[in-house]
Nucleic acid binder design. Structure first.
Lengths: 218, 218
DNA sequence: TGCAGTAGACAGTATCGCTATCCGATAGCT
DNA sequence: AGCTATCGGATAGCGATACTGTCTACTGCA
């Protein structure tokens, strides 16, 4: 399979494919000669993964590089999760502002064990601070329910993981699951918000004001 | 308060403040003269909100513009959620690929009511497709638990909302809560993954391999 | 009177994810 | 053997985003 076939069967342009190879997220083709390479199904699959992560989960090329490195060199399970966690853009990871210690306390109040030292703690705390700045500090109950939901999701992630026996499969699930799980959850949250909103504030028989319709905004 | 004071008390550079004013997300100062304006506490608060949304939640300037418009002109509650939902970058919103009908079915299977027509449905479905492409389709149980967690979060959001009586407060909570709730949840999910991972695969007394440590990757 | 500070306009910068073009080589057809 | 489409590889450019820097004209205050 030549590069043009690879391009045709994945919908990714040839320059983009070359770019991915250059960036090291896609393996070069097997060189049949000085300027003749052939690509296989592995390339098709990898390319689909790359596009899925970039388009579907907003992962950067640098993040994809880390994830595929985790897939290629099989690594301990916990580390796979860790790599994906570091690679997936948790918005706000590099804000320069320190969270208030009060907010950190609130996060730690719903957190146990090793999680207390997780780098996401200050990120969550900073988000709580931003809430407070807007003038509406959030209740403990709200945060506790978020933590409960997060625990459900984390258990689902690990249960899914344990259904696979091959450590390579597990690493893949961990890496990709962290990235795509975020967006699945965000989507379901928005859907649930719409459902719950409709339940609590049934809209008149009218037509034009469902949350869905605002998507048209630029 | 002059622009330099505003800059000093928020940590935002003067050119950035001018930029925000230019982009319409921050009100100009009250003009005392042709080149003399004064700024108040409202400007400080708004600026902190802007930085919080941009740095903390990854919202774009265009998204911030929509959110602050929702805050300034008070609008119906459902629409506030809708605006925030449209403004907050749900990664993968504009991927060109259609989801498989099978994936859409799976999402709809855990969705009810008005949510079935929500624009996030195809986004979630596309994420499921990407999972499948990597070779690891996810179980129904996994998705069902995600949906359960999303419902918990959505109910928490609305409960929080209903604690405020002022519709303006409600709009603010809805808009900001959608944006920042995403990142609070993502953070808590990562923390919960670390906790759950430690519970299921206790690491040896060693030191260097907690998921947290991988954050150092570029 | 002098100068720090201001508003406003506009051009420049850095990063990201491509995309376009050029080059020399060559496979495959005639 | 000759021709041409395509190839790999390299390098430069593009468009969007979020600033940042510079310039100008002006003005309040010491």
């Amino acid at each position: 399979m030549r590069i043009s076939d690879l391009s045709r069967s994945t919908g990714v342009s040839i320059p983009s494919i070359k770019y991915y190879i250059r960036e090291g997220v896609l393996a070069p083709g097997d060189a049949d000669g000085p300027n003749r390479s052939s690509y296989g199904e592995a390339h098709v699959a990898r390319l689909r993964l790359i596009r899925g992560l970039i388009e579907g989960a907003g992962v950067t090329i640098a993040g994809v590089k880390q994830i595929v490195a985790a897939l290629d060199g099989s690594m301990p399970l916990n580390d796979s999760f860790g790599v994906a966690q570091a690679a997936v853009p948790l918005a706000g990871r590099d804000a320069p502002v320190d969270p208030s210690s009060d907010a950190v306390e609130r996060v730690l109040a719903v957190t146990e064990g090793i999680g207390r030292h997780h780098p996401a703690v200050p990120i969550a705390a900073r988000a709580l601070d931003t809430f407070a700045v807007v003038g509406e500090p959030l209740s403990e109950a709200w945060l506790a329910r978020y933590a409960e939901a997060a625990a459900i999701v984390a258990r689902a992630d690990f249960d899914e993981l344990e259904q696979r026996s091959d450590p390579v499969d597990q690493a893949r699930i961990a890496a990709v699951g962290t990235a795509l799980g975020d967006i699945v959850f965000q989507s379901l949250r928005r859907i649930a918000q719409a459902t719950e909103g409709e339940r609590r504030f049934p809209s008149p028989p009218a037509s034009s004001s469902s949350p869905a319709d605002t998507e048209t905004a630029s």
